[in-house]
Design a protein around this nucleic acid. Structure first.
Lengths: 147, 147
DNA sequence: CAGTTTACATAGTTCACCTATATAAACCAA
DNA sequence: TTGGTTTATATAGGTGAACTATGTAAACTG
C-alpha cells in the first residue's frame, strides 16, 4: 500500500470512529438516519421525495418510509407540488426544527468536555482538519459526478 | 453557539459525510458493520466476544450475532479460552484476512482518484487532520471512561 | 388518444442494532 | 463443600434502515 493509500485508509478509519463515537453517546429518541434527514430537510427546504433521496444517497423507497416516520412524529409535513400532482413537497414543521436544534446542541455537547481540555493551538488544528476534510469532500464530489 | 461548539458540529458533520460517502461508493458484498468487525479482529487478535463488543461500542448480543455471521462466512473462527470455559477467543481466518485486505484496497481506491489530484502539501494537511482526529478520539475516550 | 415515462408508495427481505432473559461456568462465603 | 452471586455468552423478540421489485397514478409524447 503506497503512502497515499495509507492516508486514505487512516482518514476513513478515523472519520468513521469519530462519527460512530459521537452518535453513540448523543443518545436521544431520534435515530442517526432521522437526524440526518432533519438536517437535510432544513437545508433543502421544501423538496420532493426523490430530490431528498438523491441528496442523501439512498433509494427512493428508503426515503419514502423515512419521511413517513418523520411525518408521524410531527416533524415533517408535505403539500402537493403545485407544478406536478404526482409529487409532494416536504418540509420541516416548527416541531421538527426545534428537534433539530436540540440534536445539534446535544451532539456538540458530547464533544464539549473533550474540547474544553484543548488549548487554542489544538482547536486551531481541529479547525484545519475540518477544512481539509471539507476540501477533500468537495474534490471527491467533483471526481464523482464527472462520470 | 460558541466557537468550540461550532468546531465540534463542523467536525462531526464532515466526518460523518466523508465516512458515509466512502462506504456508499465502496460497495462489495460485505456490509459496513462486518468490515468494521474484520478490522477489529485483525487489530485485537484472539479476543473475547465481550472485549470486541466493548471495543466496537455495541452490545454483547449484537457482537455475538455479528461474529456468528462472520463465522458462517468462514472469515472468523473461535477456540475455547483455556483460561475460562465460559469464554471463547475469536480471530480472523486466513480467508477473513484476505477479505479485509480486499476491503482496504477498495476503500482506498474510492479516494485514490481524488488523492491523486492533491499536491504534497495537501496530503500533508490530510495527515495532520488524521493526527488531530486520532488525538481527539484518544482524549474523548479518556474523558468517557473517567465515569 | 394510446403508450411511455415519471413520482411516489407498498411489499418483502436482510442486516444491525437494542433490551430482556436464559444458561452455564467461575468465584466466594459460610 | 455447597449455595448464591457474578460473569461470559447465547437466544428471543422487536425496531429501524437499507435494498430490489413492483404497483399506481399523473404527466408527457408521438
Amino acid at each position: 500500500m503506497n503512502p497515499r493509500e495509507t492516508v486514505a485508509n487512516d482518514l476513513l478509519r478515523s472519520a468513521a470512529r469519530l462519527s460512530r463515537w459521537a452518535s453513540r453517546l448523543a443518545a436521544f429518541d431520534v435515530s442517526y438516519a432521522q437526524a440526518r434527514l432533519l438536517a437535510l430537510l432544513d437545508e433543502l427546504g421544501p423538496a420532493r421525495v426523490s430530490a431528498l433521496a438523491e441528496a442523501d444517497h439512498c433509494s427512493q423507497p428508503t426515503m419514502s418510509t423515512a419521511l413517513q416516520r418523520l411525518e408521524s412524529q410531527g416533524w415533517a409535513g408535505r403539500v402537493p407540488d403545485p407544478a406536478d400532482a404526482r409529487a409532494s413537497l416536504l418540509s420541516l414543521t416548527p416541531a421538527g426544527r426545534d428537534t433539530l436544534e436540540e440534536i445539534r446542541r446535544a451532539r456538540a455537547a458530547v464533544l464539549s468536555p473533550t474540547l474544553a481540555s484543548l488549548d487554542e493551538s489544538e482547536v486551531a488544528q481541529l479547525r484545519a482538519a475540518v477544512a481539509a476534510l471539507d476540501d477533500l469532500l468537495l474534490r471527491a464530489a467533483r471526481t464523482d459526478t464527472h462520470h
